[in-house]
């Protein structure tokens, strides 16, 4: 079973002579519980590909299926719904909501899902403990270090148990020790919860943890390596 399927996906920005082909005829299948890293130089199309899979942007052509649903044909509301129920995001810049505490940030998605408060509190407490933020639940993002903020972002992405987590350069703003700890955490969560991860990265350490490494260049997947 595949969590993500892409068939001949193209994305072109601009028109005519100014057209930039960010993705060219991408065919890809990502299986359930996989841990995939996208690597490649800047401008190779890693982030664009993640955005297409996550329904944050639409392909110029081609088909994208996530959790058996065609995201390329969905309207704004349906895309929001599939992101809410099936996809978790971790961004390079953490992207926490500054006015909410760590616990509230984690509970944000569950609140949108309409999960009752007592279940939300229980789950957020557990997941924050799992990512090593015990006792920091009530801190605002500004009161947390970069690594801690990224852990909150991971907890937020994970807490609703999505089928897929998309992480765009999650370690780019972290020091090497914190980055290693974070990737070990992601890998541990992948092993424990069976959640599918697709991570774009420049970081060789992150690539080293991937089960599958996809190398991109000029909007194409030029290499697909099964690691372990």
């Amino acid at each position: 079973m595949s969590t993500v399927t892409l068939h001949k996906v193209c994305k072109t920005f601009g028109e005519g002579k100014l057209a930039v082909h960010a993705l060219r005829d991408i065919d890809l299948e990502v299986g359930n519980g996989d841990f995939v890293c996208l690597s490649g130089p800047s401008g190779s199309g890693k982030t664009t590909l993640l955005n297409m899979i996550g329904g944050l942007d639409r392909p110029t052509s081609g088909e994208i299926t996530v959790a058996n649903q065609r995201v390329d044909q969905m309207d704004k509301g349906e895309l929001a719904e599939i992101r809410l129920r099936n996809i978790g995001f971790v961004f390079q810049a953490y992207n926490l909501i500054p006015v909410l505490s760590a616990r509230e940030n984690v509970e944000f998605v569950m609140q949108l899902q309409g999960i009752p408060p007592e279940i939300r509190h229980q789950k957020s407490k557990e997941i924050l403990a799992e990512v090593g933020l015990n006792g920091m639940e009530d801190r605002k993002p500004a009161e947390l270090s970069g690594g801690q903020q990224q852990r909150v972002a991971v907890a937020r992405a994970l807490v609703s148990e999505p089928a897929l987590i998309l992480a765009d350069e999650p370690t780019a703003n972290l020091d090497s020790v914190t980055a290693e700890k974070l990737v070990e955490l992601l890998r541990h969560l992948n092993d424990e919860h069976g959640i599918t991860f697709v991570i774009s990265t420049h970081d060789k350490m992150v690539m080293g943890h991937a089960r599958r490494l996809l190398k991109m260049h000029d909007g194409k997947i030029i290499d697909d390596i099964q690691q372990r």
Binding site: K76, G77, A80, E81, I82, R83, R85, L112
Partner: peptide
């Protein structure tokens, strides 16, 4: 970010 996390437009 709200949109990415699945907040509907309404």
């Amino acid at each position: 970010l709200f949109q990415a996390l699945g907040m509907r437009p309404r």
